[in-house]
Simulated scan of single mutants.
Amino acid sequence: MKPTLLILAAGMASRYGSMKQIDGFGPNGETIIDYSIYDAIKAGFGKVVFIIKEEFADNFRAIFDEKLKGKIDVDYVYQNFDLKQFGIEEEIYREKPWGTAHAMLSGRDIVKEPFCIINADDFYGYDAFKKMADFLTTDVTDSQFSIVGYKIGKTLSDFGAVSRGVCDVDDTGNITAINERTKVYGKDGAVVYEEDDKEYPLSFDNPVSMNFWGFTPAVFKITEQEFVKFALSHKDKPKAEFFIPLIADILIKNSSADFRSIPTDNTWFGVTYKEDKPVVQASIDELVKNGEYPENLWK
């Protein structure tokens, strides 16, 4: 059974200023998602599922349906604010979506095979997709999941702070803890994160999750249970977010699952701020020039 690729594309892109999920970055207007799907097909994935807001559906279908026809199965699921689907009758005010782990739950009714989940606006590279596909095909179990790890120093933006799931990894390559740091940046040649108005240092090589996770559908049950508890306990915090690293940390700490850190030599890059766009365009142009991607992906 071929694994499935879930793409997190429901974010509001508040810092970027527009829908970066469908912004053009390649020589012929290719989105970053195009490159992820191209690599996933090459690596052996059999299906792609877009997690989007329902109001994005027409835009996404116009961009992706025709070009992917006959190349990979495509489906769409919608992230929304309806809590009744989780058995929560109480009205809870929100200023933003509930976060990546809540978004992942949007695929729980249609994803029945091993899957990985990625961000729409991150460029991961073929090596990462190939290693993840191999893991999902041969090694994944209901108690053995994975992430692709990137060096934190190679994941920063020159234009502002970023959020990162900072990983502690043991000698066997398994993660022992994941800490979500929501304000990470470079300073004076070093990497720091800010919390409660204080700065703390991080190693340049510290592995981080860039939301490239490998799971079986077994993860949905525990995620739904934890989301209900999270929503009710954060009902007075309209900006609180339910991140995938929180689920991983829970599974690790209660010994329900191990998470293998899959190393990759790929360079990660992404778009958090509008100013990141020319940097990403230049990086993709260089990959095309070196022959790693065709100038027109889908011809």
Rank of each mutant, 00 (worst) to 15 (best):
K112C: 09
Q21M: 12
I33R: 05
K67L: 03
A177D: 06
S18P: 08
L105T: 07
K253P: 00
S143C: 12
D236G: 09
K239E: 14
K96D: 11
I284P: 02
A103N: 00
E292N: 12
D109Q: 13
A101E: 02
F25P: 04
A57D: 14
E199P: 00
K20H: 13
F86D: 05
L6Q: 10
E224C: 14
P201M: 15
E89F: 10
K112W: 07
P114T: 10
V280Y: 02
F60S: 01
T100E: 12
F230W: 06
S157L: 13
T264R: 08
L105I: 13
D134T: 15
G125R: 05
E66Y: 05
G26L: 01
F220C: 14
G173F: 08
I152P: 01
R94E: 06
A128R: 01
N119E: 00
Q21V: 00
K198D: 10
W98T: 01
L232P: 01
K2Y: 08
F60I: 10
V77N: 05
K131H: 11
L287T: 02
V74M: 14
V77A: 11
K274L: 11
D285T: 08
Q225G: 15
A103I: 05
G270W: 10
S146T: 08
V228A: 02
K71T: 03
D285R: 13
G11A: 13
F145I: 02
K84P: 10
F220Q: 02
G24Q: 01
D122K: 14
K2N: 06
G87S: 15
P201N: 11
M210K: 07
L136A: 03
E89S: 15
K183N: 06
F259L: 01
E275S: 04
K47I: 07
N254K: 09
A57W: 10
I22S: 09
Q281L: 03
D127L: 08
E275I: 00
I72D: 00
L246S: 03
R108E: 13
P114D: 10
G153K: 06
A231K: 02
K221M: 11
L105Q: 10
V192D: 04
G99Y: 03
D23Q: 03
F220H: 12
A57G: 07
F81G: 07
D134N: 15
V74R: 11
G189E: 11
G70Q: 05
D75C: 05
E194H: 00
E66N: 09
F215N: 04
K130L: 10
S18V: 05
Y76L: 00
Y76W: 01
E113K: 09
T172Q: 09
D121K: 05
S256Y: 10
D197Y: 01
I262C: 03
D82M: 08
D134I: 12
E199L: 06
A9N: 06
Y124H: 08
Q79P: 07
M1A: 09
I147K: 07
V148T: 06
F135N: 02
G44D: 14
S146N: 01
F115Q: 00
W268P: 02
Y93G: 00
